[in-house]
Amino acid sequence: MTPLLTAMLGALLASAPEEAPEGRFSVVPFLLPAYQPETSFLLGGAASLVHQPPASRGGRESQVMLAAAASTRGQFTLLLQPDVNLLEDRLNLTATASAARFPDRFFGMGANTRAEDEEDFTPIYFELELSPKWRIAPRLYVGPTVRYQHARFTQVVEGGAVQRTRGAEGGTTLQLGLAALYDSRDNTLNPVTGVLARLNLRGAQGAWGSDYAFAVLRLDVRRYVPLPWGPRHVLAMQGLVELRDGEPPFYDTGRLGGMELGRGYLEGRYRERQHLGAQVEYRAPLFWRLGGVAFASAATVAHDLRNLHINDIKPAAGVGLRFAPMSDVPVNIRLDVAYGSEPSFYLNVGEAF
């Protein structure tokens, strides 16, 4: 989902208390109006609850993101996404709970679909993902992961491309697997240096109550390099490998584009079992609490790895502004403009990666 956000209505800032022995909690909420053709006018809000451990003790920050949006046509999305560190960083708990009824566009499968084949449909999703990971070595966490998803579709074109694609009837999947996390970042909210690597291996089987049988390998690696010509000048890099085996439904395949990797493309403009991408972003302070970024990305999708072709790579680039509502909490509100297949605007809390 990539709405064209018109402006930010306001930012309501919670005052930060004095540092206590258990650390400090801060809240960064905001409201924003938006407009996109599929939804008409949209009002959304988000809030980040941030915990910063005492500087004298060190440790990793924790964040819980809550976001919601509703439109004048009765569409909605609701997201709760914690990333919490417990037991003096011996346990990392990440989770996602979401529900959405939001319009989408389907162009077919593969890297060579045509814009004129666009077909509207409205999915309804319920999703829950949970991944507790224990530290087994310095900066390395490993643990189980479980992902439940239920999907159904409304307002589907009768006899159209969606109805002819695997997964058109919706259904339920339960994926079980293993997750690993390596994190050497200096800050989990807005890093300047370090590496973050996430590996997920999951599978779905009919015996587990899933309507589809397939396996997923997802590797997401990010590197942050401080640049020598000033503080807070950072080169951020990301690489993504997302591979599937079996026959997943079309709505659970790789989706190129969106608010993170592939800004400039509608999320899901290109879909397939295999999804590869990379991006780089230069981040620099401007003045006061404002910063600027410039970014570029390249990504592609394919049914099988042997079908990958250099001509199918989709490039994109853009620039953005960052605003830190609180001087002592490293969470930015970001506004990006990018061009891939068309100009796109993004307004959100936190960095793209």
Rank of each mutant, 00 (worst) to 15 (best):
A317T: 03
T72V: 11
T253P: 00
A7G: 15
V280E: 05
L86S: 14
E127F: 14
R147M: 11
G44C: 12
L130H: 08
V293Q: 01
E129M: 08
A338C: 14
F323Y: 12
Y339H: 12
G209C: 05
V157K: 10
A338E: 02
G268F: 03
M259F: 05
G171C: 07
E242P: 04
I136E: 04
F41Y: 14
G230L: 00
P53L: 00
Y212E: 00
Y125H: 08
E61P: 05
N85H: 15
M259K: 07
N92T: 07
A69S: 08
E169I: 04
A298G: 10
R164S: 09
A213S: 15
A137H: 04
L79N: 11
R114N: 09
T154R: 09
M237P: 09
P29V: 14
R185D: 13
L130Y: 13
A324Q: 10
R185N: 05
G59S: 05
P228N: 09
Q81L: 05
D312S: 13
G177Q: 06
F76H: 07
V157F: 04
R24V: 08
L266R: 05
A115E: 15
L243N: 11
V319I: 10
E116W: 03
D120M: 05
L174R: 07
Q175F: 12
P248G: 12
